[in-house]
Amino acid sequence: MEAQLLEFIRDEFLDDPETEIDADTKLISGGFIDSFSLVSLQSYIEREFGKRIPAPRITAESFDTIKQMVQIIQQF
């Protein structure tokens, strides 16, 4: 799941796909992804993993890194 999310985020949201990001990179607070991108990410997660993550969970506190995303996805 981590690798899949990493690939999606790198391909879809990064200005420069060669930017180095990993599972611990702070994506929201680091300014890599914004609310518009998070809407696409929410839809992607629902489509790929069958989990609908409520918006209040998609925040810089709980959804900032890919590791945190995986944890949240597993909670739902």
Partner: peptide, 28 residues
């Protein structure tokens, strides 16, 4: 976009979570 993450944060969070996200889900 950054301004709205820094201005009246509790209102902009509300707008984001309960209006912006649900509206965005209506169509891709």
């Amino acid at each position: 976009s950054q301004f709205w993450r820094r201005w009246h944060i509790s209102l902009s969070d509300f707008i984001r979570d309960y209006i912006f996200f649900p509206l965005s889900r209506l169509s891709s």
